[in-house]
C-alpha cells in the first residue's frame, strides 16, 4: 500500500497501534491505508461516494496478489468501508479511539460543519484523538484560486452549495473546541501545496460533472466549463498555499 507522506507525517505522533479508527471521508483511501499500515485494530472508512468506497477497498488489496497475500488479507479483515452520511454515522456512541479527517473539510460546505462535528463527537470515545488535515485558504496571487471559484460557481448552480472551501486551521480548531475538543498540536504537512496537472484535471472534472447536471440550455454552464478548461491549460501546475495537520483530543 502506497501511503502518502502527508498521511504518515500526520499519523506519526498519534497512537494508532491497536486503536479502533474512523476515517471520515475516505476519498481514495489515503488515510485508511496509513491507519492500517500503522497497526490500527479496526478502521471504519466512511464515505458517501460509491466510487470512493470501491477505490478504498481496492487500495488495501495488494496489486500483485488477489487473495494469497497474508498482509493484504489481514489488512482487509481490519477494514470496514461504510457507505454513509457523515451527518448520521452508523456507529454507536463512544465507539472510536482515533478519527482522521484527511482532506475532508475542504469538501464540506459551511452549512454542514456543525452536523458533522457533532456526529464525530458523538462516536468519539473519551480521550479520542482527532486529526484534521486540510488546506489553509490560498494566497491571493495563486492562479488555482480561479479554478476553485469556477468549481464553486458550477456547484452552487447545480447543488446550491459550494464544492470546495478552505478553512483556516484556527477556524476548525474553534469549531471543535465548541464540542469540547482541545488542540494537541499543529504542524505543516505541505508548504507549498503542489497542485499538479492531475489535481487540476480532477477539479475541472468536477466543473464538468456539475455543468452536466444543469439544464441543457444553460449558457452559464457552458461558459464555466470553457473557462475551466482554459485555466487548466494555462496553469498547467502550480505550487501554492499550505496543508496543515491539526491534532485534537477529547477529554478523558
Amino acid at each position: 500500500m502506497d501511503v502518502p507522506r502527508t498521511v504518515t507525517t500526520a499519523l506519526e505522533d498519534r497512537p494508532i497501534e491497536g486503536a479502533v479508527c474512523l476515517e471520515a471521508g475516505a476519498g481514495v483511501g489515503n488515510a485508511t491505508a496509513g491507519l492500517l499500515a500503522n497497526g490500527a485494530a479496526r478502521v471504519y472508512a466512511v464515505t458517501d461516494d460509491r466510487t470512493h468506497a470501491e477505490t478504498t477497498l481496492e487500495r488495501v488489496r495488494s496489486p500483485t496478489d488477489d487473495d494469497g497475500n497474508d498482509d493484504s488479507r489481514r489488512a482487509r479483515n481490519r477494514l470496514a468501508v461504510l457507505e454513509a452520511d457523515l451527518r448520521a454515522l452508523p456507529l454507536p456512541d463512544d465507539a472510536v479511539e482515533v478519527i482522521t479527517a484527511h482532506g475532508l473539510f475542504n469538501v464540506v460546505p459551511p452549512a454542514d460543519l456543525d452536523a458533522i462535528a457533532g456526529e464525530l463527537t458523538r462516536v468519539a470515545a473519551p480521550g479520542c484523538h482527532l486529526l484534521v488535515d486540510d488546506y489553509e485558504p490560498l494566497p491571493d496571487e495563486a492562479a488555482v484560486r480561479d479554478l476553485f471559484a469556477l468549481e464553486n460557481a458550477a456547484a452552487q448552480l447545480a447543488d446550491g452549495a459550494p464544492m470546495v472551501t478552505f478553512y483556516p486551521a484556527e477556524a476548525l480548531g474553534r469549531l471543535f473546541a465548541g464540542y469540547g475538543w482541545t488542540v494537541d498540536r499543529h504542524r505543516m504537512l505541505l508548504d507549498p501545496v503542489p497542485w499538479t496537472a492531475s489535481h487540476l484535471e480532477a477539479h475541472a472534472e468536477v466543473v464538468r460533472s456539475r455543468v452536466d447536471a444543469l439544464p441543457a440550455d444553460s449558457e452559464l454552464g457552458a461558459a464555466l466549463l470553457e473557462r475551466a478548461d482554459a485555466l487548466v491549460e494555462a496553469i498547467g501546475s502550480e505550487s501554492a498555499g499550505e496543508m496543515y495537520s491539526l491534532a485534537l483530543r477529547r477529554p478523558e
Binding site: 502506497d2 502518502p4 507522506r5 502527508t6 507525517t9 476519498g27 481514495v28 489515503n30 477505490t55 487500495r59 496489486p63 484527511h102 482532506g103 475542504n106 469538501v107 470546495v164 504542524r187 505543516m188 504537512l189 505541505l190 508548504d191 507549498p192 501545496v193 503542489p194 499538479t196 496537472a197 492531475s198 489535481h199 480532477a202 477539479h203 472534472e205 468536477v206 501546475s237 505550487s239 499550505e242 496543508m243
Partner: peptide, 26 residues
C-alpha cells in the same frame, strides 16, 4: 529546507506518477 517543503516535492512527484487518478487532495 523545511520538512513541509521537502514533502511538497515528494507529493508532487507521487501525483505525477500515481496509479490512482482523479484525486482532488494530497
Amino acid at each position: 529546507m523545511a520538512e513541509s517543503a521537502q514533502r511538497s516535492l515528494v507529493e508532487e512527484a507521487r501525483h505525477d506518477d500515481s496509479p490512482v487518478p482523479e484525486q482532488l487532495h494530497h
